[in-house]
Design a binder for these strands. Structure first.
Lengths: 227, 227
DNA sequence: TACTTTTTAAGAGTTACTCTCATTTCATGG
DNA sequence: CCATGAAATGAGAGTAACTCTTAAAAAGTA
């Protein structure tokens, strides 16, 4: 991959672990969290310096001051170091917290806004690096899409819960996957255009398309586009 | 992966190269085609016998009677041996051949039917094996999704051509990706349910969902579903 | 037949990832 | 405070996909 055009800003380190159960937290657990973060930080730094492909697990291990074995014990694949961040349970939580009679499009719109607030805007630089890597590195994009299926299943469950439909039905699964696919494409679009747009607005437009189809080519057309 | 539950039928070998330019076809070209097919055939056979992961490139090379280097010269990755089959240009062709004033949903429905006829029904066993592997082997699924983006771009172009829209616009890209994502999920659904359903009907239902959203939960619900 | 070009084979090298086993580090009860 | 058990780590060997380079073989051409 092109090692030039790197991303510059730093990783804001402390997402101070949102209000989970606080008291019982042994030294062991704390160390684990630190190690995990050390590996991530090291990876981000190295990737910014050298590019993704040029960064080996050994280098990551060295900089994080752990053994390569440990890296693999924490992350199953190299791509996961960059990508994983357990959005799904949070999203699911959010989803369940919405009133049961809220129309589905409203729900998804609201939840996405929330997700963007906590997941993207709170750590904008990391979000940018991630999407950037998704565009540049096939393996990362691949892994991301792989995680799409997982998120998809979750969305299926959510829809099923709200509408009393079978989460395994073709219709629900297709709907969910189309949604996730569209959102994924939105991320790529954002990155490919140099993160110039406001991500939240892009997502709004995406949801609009998914709900009502392509707008009849109208004044709207030359709105944000340029090329 | 589970090496049990294998697929049994054989690979119908001759798709006799649809009417391209016939005359100038040197020995060299013919050999290349043969080699390519030999590698594919060997791979399918071995995968059926031993499962995907247990099958190494060396074994494939041995059975196809070429060197491992040659395998890699023909296919960039192991997954590609199983998956690649150049549907995209055919689809594009089909797409362009439709009358320009035909409404888009009709077009896509028609084209999909055509694609299924030539791409799935004509070589049903291979189609089944492929989708089966998509479900069972993460790497294959990944690679398939990777190819989604490529197909997606093509669909973008097609939509752009027909509607005079910008193929790079967020709206078009999202629409295309949702479409492809939905269709991909349909394939998975088909395979996960043991290829019991008629694939063409599944695709019809998929297009319906994409066009009109989830059907209001109605008699339709208990139509084909069972679990 | 000689000469050029393409295709292949052979082999060495890299790296992500797996497994195993010995060692270290933390938790706990006496 | 120390002994015992459990968990985390490190070290190392092993596998297999993929890359690159170079020499031989095959096909096309004059």
């Amino acid at each position: 991959m092109p090692d030039n055009d790197r991303m510059t800003a730093a990783h804001s380190p402390a997402t101070p672990t949102p209000p989970t159960d606080r008291p019982p937290l042994g030294l062991r657990e704390r160390k684990k969290i630190k190690t995990r973060e050390a590996i991530r930080t090291a990876t981000y730094a190295l990737v910014r310096e050298q590019g993704y492909d040029a960064t080996t697990i050994e280098q990551i291990a060295d900089r994080a001051e752990v053994s390569p074995s440990t890296v693999f014990r924490y992350f199953p694949t190299k791509e996961d170091i960059v990508l994983t961040d357990e959005y799904d349970p949070v999203l699911m939580e959010e989803l369940r917290s919405r009133p049961a009679d809220e129309p589905w499009p409203d729900t998804i719109r609201y939840v996405m806004r929330e997700a963007i607030r906590t997941g993207v805007e709170e750590d904008l630089e990391v979000a940018k690096l991630r999407t950037h890597l998704m565009v540049q590195v096939p393996a990362v994009r691949s892994r991301m899409m792989e995680s799409m299926s997982v998120t998809g299943r979750m969305v299926c469950t959510a829809i099923a819960e709200r509408t009393g439909r079978d989460p395994e039905s073709l219709e629900v699964r297709v709907y969910a996957m189309a949604l996730i696919g569209g959102l994924m494409e939105t991320s790529l679009y954002w990155a490919e255009n140099g993160h110039r747009d406001d991500f939240a607005s892009l997502v709004d437009r995406t949801l609009e398309v998914l709900q009502h189809g392509l707008p009849t080519k109208s004044p709207t057309e030359s709105r944000t586009e340029n090329h």
